[in-house]
Amino acid sequence: MSKAMISTKELSKTYGRSGKVIALDKLNLEVYEGETFGLLGPNGAGKTTTVRLLNCIIKPTGGSATVGGHDLIKGSLEIKSMTGLLAESPGLYEKLSAHEFLQFMGALYDVPDDVLDTRTDKLIRLFGLHSRRNHLLEGYSRGMKQKVLIAAALIHDPPLLFFDEPTSTLDPNAALMVKDLMKDLAENAGKTIVVCSHILPIIEELCDRIGIINRGKLVAVGTIDELLARTGKNTLEKAYIDITGGVQKKELLSWRELRGAKA
């Protein structure tokens, strides 16, 4: 078995004075080198908190973790250098062009100038942004911004990549391209990838293993087959709903059961 790229022990994050708001509750998880790992969970379950913790953007309030063999607290510099992150709600310098923004991100990660120029150009072409490379990002559509942000996560060619909802704002062609890119990065470039997404077909196709977080707790982890076997369901969607608890069908139109409601 490959060695663990990410290893967490009772990793926790709470907010509030007495830790009343539990964002992540004693997470024990291992993600192996070269693996594509899917992190699923309802909105507000703790996926983004997990990603932020593993990228050393926020500090844990309990437990410990290593990323690439480096301790989350002591080795934060090394971890930041070896990870690439596409955040769920990322910041962007809107007054920079795509080219300038990628140059800026490359500089933040100390990519050598000659490598940076070529890589910036190639990534811009890969994402079909070449004709608008000198336009300011403020004029880009949401999908185009997402492409720039994915390129920014790749600019320093890190061995470990985190993609939080990578395809949610992309058109089908671009989504397919990003999906193929992630597949290629995992299979042919040996990257370890952690994907958070609600688009289950992508997770099904890309991920070797899946973890499901609900209310800050990791409630299930395993391959798709393992999860299906555990829940006795025949699709990932049904298994996911079984594990996290879905909305009962009879409740769906209950809001219309009011006097005077029209068809």
Partner: peptide, 18 residues
């Protein structure tokens, strides 16, 4: 520009000092 913008630096090694 908000916290998200600061997180660009937070994510980078020694980003805050940069």
């Amino acid at each position: 520009r908000g916290k998200e913008n600061l997180f660009i630096y937070r994510k980078a090694p020694k980003g805050e000092l940069r």
